[in-house]
């Protein structure tokens, strides 16, 4: 029990005309990397806001390190949440923002922060308001990493960053996490890129949790069967179909299944090809199903969703 860093029970957050979070319950355990996934506007930032007492719950309870985080310095000083739209004092430079962070985060590693700034090629003496979107993201990433807070939230940390910088972030995250284990919550709609970093996946859609599972369990939970349409259809009959594709007489159907060795052999003997379904496809499917897209999503809807989930810059 003491391993639980975050415990949320029946949390609801209502704004005037929207319910941003709808009776959510979840726990985050110590020293794990969580993926908080979902589309833009699904409620990810609202959830993190409430967990860090930057926002307020309308209903339900939130416990962080076993206590209510609201105005609770003992809890707050152990966490770090730099939001995607984080505001900085207009006249601050990155160097000054890091100096400020060093005043508040006990585990702050200034040397690490400077090394990161160099890696991200961040102009440290330029005013923050003059930085590009990507450089602004880098400031947030550096504060998040160098704070070494026991509970660190990264809110869509890669906006405006190019592929090189994004991978730089992933590299540093894995390396620093390995050396300084802590609980990390990585909010993202770019699932493919971060999938391998995650130990646990929480997917939110329209204020509700629609998936809350071990990342490896999710990855192994579905399989794609390809081959002659008739053979595929009989092989997958009776299973939950996630999505399917068809070209002439060849079909490719993804079903929820963990095939046994015997089933795999059977598939091979039938001339079927087996493939895995990526975490991103599974999340997209879950979101679609929750949005009322039906059991088997059409390819067009899938592509549209995938596009949304892979879009990097806005």
């Amino acid at each position: 029990m003491s391993e639980d860093v975050v415990r949320v029970t029946d949390l609801t957050r209502r704004y005037k005309d929207v319910t941003a979070l709808d009776t959510i319950s979840l726990t985050f355990r110590k020293d794990r990397i969580y993926g908080l996934l979902g589309r833009n506007g699904a409620g990810k930032t609202t959830l993190m806001s409430v967990l860090t007492a930057q926002g307020f719950p309308s209903d339900g309870t939130v416990e962080v390190f076993g206590e209510d985080p609201y105005e609770n310095e003992a809890v707050l000083r152990r966490l770090c949440f730099i939001r995607e739209s984080q505001k900085y004092p207009d006249n601050f430079t990155p160097a000054q923002a890091f100096r400020a962070a060093s005043l508040f985060f006990e585990g702050w590693d200034q040397e690490f922060a400077l090394r990161l700034a160099e890696d991200f090629q961040l102009p440290q003496k330029r005013q923050i308001k003059k930085l590009s979107r990507g450089q602004l993201s880098a400031v947030g990433i550096i504060i998040g990493l160098a704070s070494r807070a026991e509970l660190t939230f990264f809110d869509e940390p890669y906006l405006g960053l190019d592929a090189v910088a994004r991978h730089l972030f992933y590299d540093h995250l894995v390396r620093d996490y390995a050396e300084h284990p802590r609980t990390v919550v990585l909010s993202s709609h770019l699932i493919d890129e971060v999938a391998n970093l995650l130990e646990h996946v929480v997917v939110i859609d329209r204020g509700r949790i629609i998936m809350n599972d071990d990342a490896e369990a999710v990855r192994g939970s579905a399989v794609t069967v390809s081959g002659p349409a008739g053979v595929v259809a009989s092989f997958v009959s009776g299973r939950e179909v996630l999505f399917e594709e068809r070209l002439m007489n060849t079909a490719s159907v993804s079903v929820r299944a963990q095939l046994s060795v015997a089933e795999r052999r059977e598939a091979a003997e039938l001339g079927l090809t087996l493939g895995q379904v990526s975490l991103q496809q599974l999340v997209v499917h879950a979101s679609l199903a929750h949005s009322g897209g039906g059991m088997a999503a059409s390819q067009a809807a899938m592509s549209a969703f995938e596009a949304e989930f892979t879009e990097v810059s806005r």
Binding site: R32, I33, H167, Y170, D171, V174, R175, Y177, A178, E179, N196, L197, L198, E199, A215, E216
Partner: peptide, 18 residues
Amino acid sequence: STNEFAQFYRINPATAAK
């Protein structure tokens, strides 16, 4: 080590350990 695997393949250290 587990951490070396995690860093090299850019995966979660717990997964590498598993």
